[in-house]
Design a binder for these strands. Structure first.
Lengths: 350, 350
DNA sequence: TTCTTCTTCTAACACGCGTTAGCAGATTCG
DNA sequence: CGAATCTGCTAACGCGTGTTAGAAGAAGAA
């Protein structure tokens, strides 16, 4: 039970050598120190329970061996959302491989300046930005800095922007082709608008599927949710009233966020809409929640753990100044067919 | 776009003062520095974009303003588990209040020695241990150190062990009384054994409920799962075969972990057991997953966010050497009745 | 004028460690 | 025997900052 921290100089004194010698031995540097002396030092270190001080080490080497993570989202988005758990699991295992720790920047969501200052304080060697709603000011501000940054699940238009994401365009394409194959011809599309990169990409995927099936683009009824709108009851009401006001009535819905899709399928029966009979639903960001819901949600799955791990790899390449040829690494998506999309249209409406 | 880091001495030189003066001004120390000089320094700091270096500050003050978090569990436990997300959300908001960041110790689960070294490296001011299966070697080893530590959701028998948990005994009591009120008389109890504090506590709660209803203690059929058993398919098989081998056959099950309960109710129909008709199920650690499952799980809820935030409060009290009277802070639990416990016994078996 | 007191600022130390330059002593070579 | 080389080690600097002790100059007092 050491009551005070053991420093390297304590080890050196106990071994009867200078601190420099102790440093050489403990760091395995070949400075011609005879095995006998080395043993003395190592023994003293073990007996005293010496642990190198991470702070001092970071100061002198300029490397903290930490990577920062910023959750640039309202807290309520992640407490009951497996998206973040999965990404974090991937990030963690990636960090373990490279022997890095994770610095979770805790800051109130809208106060990006506090986060900005924190990231520039040098407490980590680089930063991962996770923010599905990051049409914010933090990302561009950070990219104008010399701090290595990798964005997860989004990107912005900036020459220094590195990112890891899934193939959003293909995901939306798969979702729509699935619905088209089931016989649907009128679609609702819920997304956050073009300000978020994946919003734009998924929109393009939707258009491609419609185009390929020679369907007119006005078969797509777009509902753009306000960026600041939490997936709350109030939001669900406005989303449902949109669904019911649109003519011709859509028979299928693609909702770009799992949390919102879950709330929707929970509330739609109360509004007289049966899923999938009256409305087929396909969601994004498939996690175990989609599988458990009733009806279970057909949705686009992306390899969140791999994405998290790949983001760490990319960030560490940037930190250690290796060449990173790809600005954005994309992972393939896949369609998980479950109940909410139904088995096809028996009596298509007009 | 500063290509190199701006240090305090750069600010001082730009303002034409010594570094000491700059330090006084920037830290708001009253050293009789006239307002005019102060303005010069502040202006220079703003123009150069000065940010204090967190590492150097930590070295000289001895405070990192970081709290460590150790997830002393296999990774697979948390990727698809809302328990951790909720606790972490609470920890984050607690940390924000105190202006602390979070250092997520990433290490392979069984390798506690690496974690131990990491925690003692002084990269954080104190550590939160989260480990529902922490009958491990890390916790006692850390408690023999002068590093402040708070355990979340468990505790061990050690004079320096501080912890935040829910009222496990009461939780189990509520679960069993609910089932007893529904008419059940033969029970299965799935738990990890007495090696984990909440296992022991919940067991005692079960006994209290039985005792209060004047039921014999052999009405409780205890299944103790191996600590290292993941809630996998293999585990589910052995759990189900236990259920089917016990005589008299239990009509109700209390399973101490949500993830296992979810897997069970998914597989029980395949084994010819209907939930809740043949077997009423009550689970612990209620999250949104319990609400979404089919049948939805009746379960004991605990305020995970509050627990996380309270653990931060307690840890920071320890770090700043304030008096912490309570060794273990307990939060109340509540029973959330859903479908899996049924509406009562119509035809109780013998 | 000379001493004291205030105002305004700075030199210098400390935090724990990696690292460079170089110092003694022993050995080898010419 | 003196010079060069090798062996084994250490003094000292620097990383960026908070902080203490005290210096230089001005102002006031004797």
């Amino acid at each position: 039970m050491p009551s005070r921290r053991v420093r390297m100089i304590d080890v050196a004194q106990a071994a009867g050598v200078s601190r420099t010698t102790a440093s050489f031995v403990l760091n395995g540097r070949d400075a011609g120190i005879p095995p006998e002396t080395q043993q003395r030092v190592l023994l003293a270190a073990r007996q005293l329970g010496y642990r190198p001080n991470a702070t001092a080490l970071a100061l002198v080497t300029g490397r903290t061996h930490r990577i920062g993570i910023v959750l640039n989202e309202p807290e309520s988005f992640r407490a009951n959302d497996l998206y973040f758990s999965n990404v974090l699991a991937g990030v963690t295992s990636g960090a373990v491989c490279h022997n890095y720790n994770l610095l979770l920047h805790s800051a109130h969501y809208p106060d990006w300046q506090a986060l900005y200052a924190d990231i520039l304080s040098g407490a980590s060697d680089g930063t991962l930005l996770i923010g599905r709603y990051a049409s914010d000011q933090l990302t561009p501000a950070l990219l104008d800095t010399d701090v290595p940054v990798v964005c997860i699940s989004y990107q912005i238009d900036h020459p220094r922007c590195y990112a890891v994401d899934c193939d959003n365009e293909e995901g939306a394409y798969l979702a729509f082709r699935h619905l088209i194959d089931l016989g649907h011809r009128q679609f609702a599309f819920f997304y956050p608008g073009h300000s978020v990169s994946w919003g734009c990409e998924r929109y393009l995927g939707a258009l491609r599927a419609l185009d390929e099936a020679s369907l007119p683009s006005d078969a797509l009824h777009v509902y753009e949710w306000p960026e600041t709108a939490l997936p709350s009851l109030k939001w669900v009401h406005s989303a449902i009233s949109f669904l019911q006001s649109v003519r011709p009535r859509p028979t299928a819905l693609v909702c770009c966020e799992e949390a919102r899709a879950l709330h929707l399928v929970e509330r739609l029966p109360g509004a007289g809409v049966r899923v999938p009979d009256d409305l087929a639903v396909v969601s994004f960001n498939s996690t175990e929640l989609s599988a458990l819901a009733r009806p279970s949600l057909t949705s686009i799955w992306q390899p969140l753990k791999e994405i998290g791990a790949a983001a760490v790899d990319m960030l560490i390449d940037l930190i250690e100044e290796r060449d990173v040829p790809q600005r954005c690494r994309r992972f393939p998506v896949s369609l998980h067919v479950r109940e909410s999309s139904g088995t096809g249209m028996e009596s298509p409406r007009t």
